[in-house]
Amino acid sequence: MTVLYHITTPSPAHMANLVLLLVCLGAGALLRRAQLVPSGAHAVLNQLIIVLLLPALTFLHLAEARFDQRFLLPMLMPWLIFGVGWLFFAALGRQLRLARGTVGALILTGGISSVSFVGFPIFEALYGKQGLELGLVMSLAGSVLVSVTLGVVVASWYGAARPSWRGIGANLMGFPPFLAFVAALVAQAVGYRHPALVRGVLEKLSAPFPVVALLSVGMQLQFRVPAGRGQMLAWGLGYKLLLAPLVVWALYVGVAQQHGPAVDLCLLGAAIGPMNTAAVIADRYGLDPPLAAQMVGLGIPLSLPLLALLGWWLH
């Protein structure tokens, strides 16, 4: 069976995501540098994200989500690179004797891709409507779900001086996006559909999420790499941008012998820079927030030429 690839023009709305991403990161950094916002303003934004915006986003999309077998590979990919990243950075932390917070920050930001902001316009440009549909599943059932479940587990474990499963359970139950995920599972089980009024409210509540999250990351972003931090960034971005797509290629193509647009999109998705929500969670749990912010702020721009090269190679 021959698969015909095609290149389409991404919609203005999805191209705007890329521009918005860079503008918000730069605006956040400028606001902090010019002292136009109080010190610690990002912590207020992060609290707003965790308590209100991310729960609304999670329930809005996951309560009505329906997936079938053709979405399996894109759904699994984010869980795969997060799990492998967890093992990789845990071993690296033991080898280099890194602080627990640093290891946790690397796992979170090195293991979760910013699929929605960076991936959607690229997927749509390369594979049209099919690419966008697969990207939505990769984001909702993958990146978003990983961040509000395993992401909180990692944050709780590495953010505590003496971690325990009871403490992790308490953190999960006290994490509003996770509670929204549980509510979405119940809604799916009973065949729930959003009434027009509920959908409208959830859409308006979640709409500011990307801007607020990116501004928060930008406020924490330091473009100058402090002495001694370059090695950590190199390891973190090396895994996120290079090793993660190699892992996906080895398992999906080399071992499972899978081919086609879904596999290509998984390779592209694995190579996307870190998700901004990961840096927000890292900051909430005190996991080396400056490193987490730099992983996002530097990783996303660095991933763009890599994605262009990878997209050309896949075609």
Rank of each mutant, 00 (worst) to 15 (best):
Leu54Cys: 10
Asn46His: 12
Pro10Arg: 14
Ile107Glu: 02
Ile300Trp: 00
Gly273Cys: 06
Gly111Trp: 01
Val182Thr: 13
Ala105Thr: 05
Leu233Met: 07
Leu134Phe: 06
Asn276Leu: 14
Trp313Pro: 08
Trp312Gly: 07
Leu185Tyr: 01
Ile272Ala: 04
Ala105Pro: 04
Leu214Val: 05
Ile300Ser: 05
Leu21Thr: 13
Leu140Arg: 02
Gly228Ile: 14
Val296Met: 11
Leu246Val: 06
Tyr158Met: 11
Gln69Tyr: 15
Leu309Tyr: 10
Ala189Asp: 04
Gln258Leu: 13
Val154Cys: 13
Trp313Val: 12
Ala27Lys: 09
Ser114Val: 15
Ala16Gln: 09
Ala99Ile: 12
Val37Met: 02
Trp312Ile: 06
Val182Glu: 01
Gly151Trp: 01
Tyr285His: 15
Ile281Ser: 05
Leu126Pro: 01
Pro121Phe: 00
Pro226Tyr: 08
Arg66Cys: 04
Phe88Ala: 13
Lys129Cys: 05
Glu133Gly: 04
Thr277Glu: 07
Ala279Lys: 08
Leu214Pro: 03
Gln35Ser: 10
Val153Trp: 01
Met15Asn: 10
Gln294Trp: 00
Asp264Phe: 03
Leu268Arg: 02
Leu221Ala: 03
Ala262Cys: 04
Gly111Ala: 13
Glu124Ser: 06
Gly101Thr: 07
Ala183Lys: 11
Ala282Glu: 02
Gly167Ile: 07
Gly93Asp: 04
Thr9Pro: 00
Ala183Met: 14
Thr149Gly: 09
Gly93Asn: 11
Gln130Thr: 15
Ala125Ile: 06
Leu150Lys: 09
Gly135Ser: 08
Gln130Ile: 10
Phe117Gly: 12
Glu64Phe: 00
Leu309Arg: 15
Val152Pro: 04
Leu287Pro: 00
Gly236Asn: 08
Phe71Thr: 15
His42Thr: 09
Phe223His: 05
Leu185Val: 15
Ala105Ile: 01
Gly311Ala: 07
Pro176Glu: 03
Ala308Ile: 15
Gly93Tyr: 05
Val186Trp: 11
Asn46Lys: 07
Pro208Ser: 03
Glu133Asp: 11
Lys240Pro: 00
Gly273Val: 09
His259Phe: 10
Val248Thr: 03
Leu45Arg: 09
Arg193Phe: 03
Gly159Tyr: 00
Ala91Cys: 08
Thr8Gln: 15
Pro226Ser: 10
His194Phe: 09
Leu48Met: 12
Val118Phe: 01
Leu310Val: 11
Gln69Leu: 13
Gly128Ile: 08
Val253Asp: 00
Gln35Gly: 11
Trp157Asn: 09
Ser206Asp: 05
Ala278Gln: 08
Arg66Met: 08
Leu25Trp: 00
Leu31Asn: 13
Glu124Tyr: 01
Leu215Cys: 10
Val212Met: 06
Leu52Met: 11
Phe88Cys: 13
Val182Cys: 12
Leu18Cys: 07
Gly174Gln: 15
Leu106His: 06
Gly142Asp: 02
Leu215Phe: 03
Leu48His: 12
Leu246Thr: 02
Gln220Thr: 06
Lys129Gly: 06
Ala279Pro: 06
Arg97Phe: 04
Val44His: 01
Gly111Cys: 15
Leu80Phe: 03
Gly169Pro: 12
Tyr192Gln: 05
Phe120Trp: 15
Val198His: 10
Leu221Asp: 03
Trp157Cys: 04
Val37Tyr: 03
Ile7Trp: 06
Tyr239Gln: 10
Gly151Asp: 07
Gly174Thr: 04
Gly159Thr: 09
Val153Lys: 03
Pro195Trp: 12
His315Pro: 01
Leu265Thr: 07
Gly286Ala: 09
